[in-house]
Design a protein around this nucleic acid. Structure first.
Length: 487
RNA sequence: GGUCUCUUAGUAUAACGGUUAGUACAACGGGUUUUCAUCCCGUCAACGCGGGUUCGACUCCCGCAGAGAUCACCA
């Protein structure tokens, strides 16, 4: 049984956006479920598009998602180096092999001439194929001259693990560039050599490579090496259309979602299940479950529209799942950078209490900023919120003030030591009975006095976390403001 | 334009010849002592079109239409 080896081979031209993370996730899952090796190879042969720091960005993203690579990049491994620029000599050697057997040639033709050929063909309305313009005289290769593959056009059939049996005619096979003028290989050539030397058993990449596969087939054949299994991944589509999602469409980087407070588990879960499912009705998957259940043959053949709403829903599910299964400490550890500034002055234990009563309202962790400020600073009194409240607008100011007085009296009768959620609920229930008010009326008033927020957790819990002193002082403050306003 | 790929509700998907076409998100309505959310219940909503094959087709075949990808010394 051959060891399963997969790879993620990004080009360091910027961040990893959500449109292409799946080509990292799936190979990782395939490798892990077979106890195989997952390689990170950096395809940095395009000097013009190279972006400084992109490799680090890519590594950070993978690490954040939990996609640890076994070999590659700076980590090393037995088949390195894993930066293509460092493998320059290897590609040249293989290109020379092809030249030696007459399957590649040095081509000094300049780009203007090539452009001319193309234009002529376009004008004649015949398909442009460079092999029809192949130089008749041979040139000896020397540095600075590109090397082209000498194609052998014929019908080709192959199998794609997702798309099934595919076929292409000779009309799409051409003399593609193997080694560029700058001495570096093209993707078309480099990935074939690398996958072979790194013993990759699967090539998982976007469907955009489908049309050039016949050319790759020809190179494999000429080289006499076996092609790994091909897994073409359908595109992730823009939310508003059918086009593939790309950076130009404002595709967010994975790290942007991290900054918004999306959990890596949710991101991974959502992306893995976009265009794949195991045939059951399961929606929430842990990494371990994905590794266990992932199945290439169940990858969808059509593109899938990216739907942020569902990602948000899934993030909420994960927030609750982590709280339920791993507890408040674990959930709290994920919230480090998401608290309002004012929270800094409060002890960790207090913040954990706040989190434990607010967490099921969070869609993203950054919601903490706007949802919890009244736990850390006294809210600004806004009488309009009281006057316009649909349950309170029929009360006169004196009625509101006396309702607050009664509430303050009842709540202050609770000793500090008894200020817990149960006692508070009992007191609130009693207060309801004594005042003969509806919950909507009494509770709205107290809730607003405490938070002046559009929403907040259950009243007894809010009172409990806020504490006796703060709660009473806020109620008093509102009462004073109402009386003051009435004069 | 050539070549290739794709096509189940608004979105993501299930079904692998026989089901009232299932599930989730979204939307809408309702319930859980206020709000927002969670949770629970319910409603709406789909097999692109046309031919075959078959007793029977979302499922198999052929056309068509629509959508997408690709035609670089980018990957």
């Amino acid at each position: 049984m051959k060891k399963i080896i997969t790879r993620f081979a990004p080009s360091p031209t910027g961040y990893i956006h959500i449109g292409n993370v799946r080509s990292a996730i799936y190979p990782y899952l395939v490798a892990k479920q077979a106890n195989g090796t997952f390689i990170l190879r950096i395809e940095d042969t395009d000097q013009a598009r190279y972006v400084d720091g992109a490799t680090t960005l890519i590594e950070d993203t993978l690490t954040w998602l939990g996609l640890d690579w076994d070999e590659g990049a700076d980590k090393g491994g037995s088949d390195g180096p894993y930066y293509q620029t460092e493998r320059k000599a290897i590609y040249l050697e293989w290109a020379k092999k092809l030249m030696a057997i007459g399957r590649a040639y040095a081509d000094p033709t300049d780009s203007e001439t090539i452009e001319k050929y193309r234009n002529e063909d376009n004008l004649k309305k015949v398909p442009y194929l460079y092999r029809n313009h192949r130089p008749v005289t041979t040139t000896e290769w020397q540095p600075g001259i590109p090397i082209r593959f000498k194609s052998d056009p014929k019908p080709r059939d192959w199998h794609d693990e997702v798309m099934g049996d595919l076929h292409a005619g000779p009309e799409v096979q051409d003399d593609i560039i193997l080694i560029k003028k700058d001495g570096l290989p093209t993707y078309n050539f480099a990935h074939i050599i690398d996958d072979y030397l790194m013993k990759c058993t699967y090539i998982m990449r976007g469907v955009e490579y489908l049309p050039s596969t016949p050319n790759y087939l020809a190179i494999y054949e000429a080289l006499g090496i076996e092609m790994p299994k091909i897994v073409s991944l359908p595109h992730i589509l823009r939310p508003d259309g059918r086009k593939k999602l790309g950076k130009r469409d404002g595709a967010k980087s994975v790290t942007e979602y991290r900054e918004d407070g999306i959990l890596p588990e949710a991101m991974l879960n959502y992306l893995a299940c976009l265009g794949w499912n195991d045939g059951t009705e399961q929606e929430i998957y842990t990494m371990a479950e994905l590794i266990e259940k992932f199945d290439i043959s169940k990858i969808q053949t059509s593109g899938a529209r990216y739907d942020e709403t569902k990602l948000l829903w899934m993030n909420g599910q994960w927030i609750r799942k982590i709280f339920a299964e791993q507890g408040i400490d674990e959930l709290y550890s994920r919230t480090k950078n998401f608290w309002p500034e004012s929270a800094a002055n409060y002890p960790i234990e207090y913040r954990k209490q706040v989190l434990s009563i607010i967490y099921d309202r969070l869609k993203v962790l950054s919601d903490l900023k706007s949802m919890t400020d009244y736990f850390f600073v006294d809210p600004k009194i806004n009488l309009d919120l009281i006057i316009n409240n649909k349950f309170l607008k029929n009360f006169s100011e004196s009625e509101l003030a006396s309702l607050l007085s009664t509430s303050i009296q009842a709540l202050s009768s609770i000793e500090s030591s008894d200020w817990d959620a149960n006692h508070l609920q009992e007191t609130l229930n009693q207060l309801l009975a004594d005042t003969d008010k509806k919950p909507a009326e009494l509770f709205s008033l107290i809730r607003l006095a405490l938070s002046f927020a559009p929403f907040s957790p259950a009243l007894n819990l809010t009172l409990n976390v806020l504490g006796r002193d703060t709660s009473l002082s806020r109620l008093n403050a509102l009462r004073a403001a109402i009386l003051n306003d009435g004069e």
